[in-house]
Amino acid sequence: MLLFAAITFSDSNQELFLALNLGGHVFGDRVWANLTMLGDGAVALALVLPCIKRTPDRFWAALIAAVIATAYVQLIKHALPIPRPLALLESDAFFHSGPPHRTGAFPSGHAAAAFALAGIWVMGLRGYVVLRLMLLLLAVLVSLSRVMVGVHWPLDLLGGMLGGWLAAWCGLILSSRFGWTTCSLWGLASGLVLLVIAAALLFSQHIGFPEVMPLQRGVGIVCLLWGGWELLQTPFQLPMRRRAREE
């Protein structure tokens, strides 16, 4: 929030975008493309699948956070149709890769997804300081990748980060309060939907970066196999009324 205020009042959003975008490709364009892939909504949902049995509280917290973050991003995007860099700057003035988005800049959906998912573990874990710091750093890099590929302003990232973090906080509070289990039909249905999403990552090119397909398929395979195993190990139960009727 302090960074958001500083950039807004100094009117340095465009200047900072150009500085980051033009100077941030020391590690190569492919690195940023793969990082931006990790902030895709489908990828973020698939990454939730492996914790369906081991940590059901964080499983539900992540799904709740996904709903809240999506609503946050879409409502603001429609209320504030802010143009993206391609709509305001000459295409040869900065680096751009991937789909040529021109509208719906604020906030960044990728930043919201990255911070919602990372926030579940950063705020939900106790101890594991190094792991939590690494997840937070990864979420920052995923968010920053949206500037590096030329589709978002710095303020878009900060708005997405804030929304994703708040969504994770709400998800953790609600899942803790209601104490939902994944051994229910709702858990089974949610797991099956996420399995379909993970399977779709093996062939879908919706992200628009052909160079990320190897990593995207790798994430899909790992989530599909790991999540499928977790589903098989989960003792799903029928509703009490149906069970009584059958007995």
Score class of each variant (00 low, 15 high):
Ala6Cys: 00
Ile7Tyr: 01
Leu16Asn: 01
Phe17Ile: 09
Leu18Glu: 04
Gly23Met: 05
Phe27Val: 15
Val31Asp: 01
Leu38Lys: 03
Gly39Thr: 11
Gly41Arg: 05
Ala42Ile: 03
Ala42Gly: 07
Val43Gln: 13
Val43Thr: 15
Ala44Asp: 05
Ala46Val: 01
Leu47Gly: 00
Val48Phe: 09
Leu49Gln: 04
Leu49Cys: 05
Pro50Gly: 05
Cys51Ile: 15
Pro56Trp: 02
Leu63Cys: 07
Thr70Asp: 14
Ala71Val: 15
Leu75Met: 10
Leu80Pro: 09
Ile82Leu: 13
Arg84Met: 00
Leu88Gly: 04
Leu89Cys: 10
Asp92Ser: 08
Ala93Val: 14
Phe94Met: 04
Pro99Thr: 04
Pro99Phe: 03
Gly104Cys: 08
Gly104Gln: 07
Pro107Ile: 03
Gly109Trp: 12
His110Gln: 09
Ala116Thr: 01
Ala118Thr: 13
Trp121Arg: 04
Tyr128Gly: 00
Tyr128Pro: 01
Val130Tyr: 11
Leu131Met: 13
Leu133Glu: 04
Leu136Arg: 13
Leu136Asp: 12
Leu137Gln: 13
Leu141Arg: 07
Arg146Lys: 08
Met148Phe: 09
Val149Arg: 08
Gly150Ala: 06
Leu158Met: 02
Met161Asp: 06
Leu162Glu: 09
Gly163Trp: 04
Gly164Arg: 12
Leu166Ser: 01
Leu166Asp: 02
Ala167Gln: 06
Cys170Asp: 10
Cys170His: 11
Gly171Thr: 15
Ser175Cys: 05
Ser175Arg: 06
Ser176Tyr: 09
Phe178Leu: 10
Gly179Gln: 03
Cys183Tyr: 12
Cys183Ala: 11
Gly187His: 02
Gly187Glu: 00
Leu188Met: 02
Leu188Gly: 02
Ala189Ser: 12
Ser190Met: 03
Gly191Pro: 10
Val196Pro: 05
Ala199Leu: 14
Ala200Met: 14
Phe203Ile: 14
Gly208Pro: 05
Val212Tyr: 11
Val212Asp: 11
Val212Asn: 10
Val212Cys: 08
Pro214Val: 15
Gln216Glu: 15
Gly220Gln: 00
Leu224Gly: 03
Leu224Tyr: 02
Trp226Asn: 10
Trp226Ile: 15
Trp229Asn: 08
Trp229Glu: 12
Glu230Leu: 07
Gln233Leu: 13
Leu238Phe: 12
Pro239Tyr: 01
Arg242Ala: 10
Ala244Glu: 14
Arg245Val: 15
Arg245Tyr: 11
Glu246Met: 13
Glu247Pro: 07
